[in-house]
């Protein structure tokens, strides 16, 4: 067995594992019978497991998501796939009012164990309605676990944990990560409720926190910073809700500097939440400099290439911000 994967084929391996081992797992969403929609992350699943369990659908995000929630209540473990988070907005009621609420609202008796896979797929001059990274919206919703894998291992293992979780989970993967490569050990099932932020690079000068594609940017910036003699500790959030800040707090208490990167907007975003959670837990004298966040500017995604280049955070931007923070 080849144990080399990229982020996309790691998810494919998770789908194959789940469909092979759990008869109650099925997958529903747009583009599942097309090689063009979801990169290399679901190739030929319908041929291996049949079109009854790998279902391509009409253009009906709302009904498909609601149907998955209902199937979950009735004992299945459905995975709904939205090739872009933007399209998933038609399904907000099923996700926010229904899936996220049913456990609490019915005294802990209902278990809508649905996994909603929302893909971030931006760039390429696609513009405002094909580019959004809305993790902050969903992380705001109690009852909905929000997962953002940044590594090849997490792309596979967190997908499996998400589907096996008795709770509704929004699993957000990012097309800008699909070429990331790694060698993975055999699959071991993990309990999603125990997943915590993870330190991907130890360091002592500053703490950089990120998730999803932003973590990749952070790691690349970390390499450049090492070359400049700056030692960054890089922490990947992995699960945005519920959010456990302990590891970050402990790190910042050592490094006294905090930079948070998020691929969403600034106002009411994930980066602000991370900073607030740290600030309220450390002593007032902890920080040597005020924390910094790097996000998208508060504007919809443009199309024109020149504007796209100015819109998305880059490794160089991060390195510059760190230099400002440290000097």
């Amino acid at each position: 067995m080849d144990n080399k994967y990229n982020y996309g084929t790691a998810m494919l391996a998770a789908f194959e594992y789940l469909l092979a081992n759990y008869p109650e797992v099925f997958v529903i969403g747009q583009g599942l019978w097309s090689p063009w929609y979801v990169g290399n992350s679901m190739t030929n699943l319908e041929k291996k497991f049949g079109t009854a369990r790998v279902i391509d659908t009409p253009v009906s995000e709302s009904a498909c998501t609601g149907a998955a929630v209902g199937a979950a209540l009735a004992g299945m473990k459905p995975i709904v796939v939205h090739p872009r988070i933007d399209f998933m907005l038609y399904a907000m009621d099923a996700i926010v009012n229904q899936a996220a609420k049913w456990s609490h609202m019915f005294g802990g008796q209902a278990s809508p164990a649905v996994t909603i896979r929302g893909i971030i797929n931006r760039g390429g001059e696609q513009g405002a309605q094909h580019s959004q990274a809305l993790q902050a919206w969903f992380a705001h919703i109690p009852g909905l676990r929000v997962v953002m894998p940044a590594t090849v291992a997490d792309a596979r293992d967190l997908l499996i944990s998400s589907v096996l979780s008795p709770d509704p989970v929004l699993f957000i993967d990012d097309r800008w990560l699909y070429d990331l490569e790694d060698t993975l050990p055999p699959i071991v099932e993990h309990n999603l409720a125990l997943a915590r932020p993870q330190c991907l690079q130890a360091g002592h000068d500053l703490t950089i926190v990120a998730s999803g594609y932003s973590t990749r940017l952070a790691l690349n910036a970390g390499q450049k910073l090492t070359g400049q003699g700056i030692s960054a500790e890089i922490i990947d959030l992995r699960v945005l809700n519920p959010f456990y800040p302990e590891l970050i707090v402990e790190s910042v208490e050592r490094t006294k500097h905090l930079l948070v990167i998020d691929g969403g907007w600034r106002t009411c975003g994930v980066a602000g939440e991370v900073i607030a959670s740290v600030v309220e837990r450390v002593s007032t004298s902890c920080f040597k400099k005020p924390p910094i966040r790097i996000t998208l500017p508060d504007a919809p995604a443009p199309t024109s290439k020149v504007l796209e280049n100015a819109y998305y955070p880059t490794v160089d931007l991060i390195v510059n911000c760190v230099n400002k923070l440290m000097h």
Partner: peptide, 25 residues
């Protein structure tokens, strides 16, 4: 004005009040 590309079109003087790629949007 270069903010939309092929999928986001606007031409009010000619009665065109907008095309967007969210299906049925």
């Amino acid at each position: 004005r270069g903010m939309g590309g092929s999928m986001h079109l606007w031409d009010k003087p000619n009665g065109f009040y907008g095309a967007v790629p969210i299906v049925s949007g």
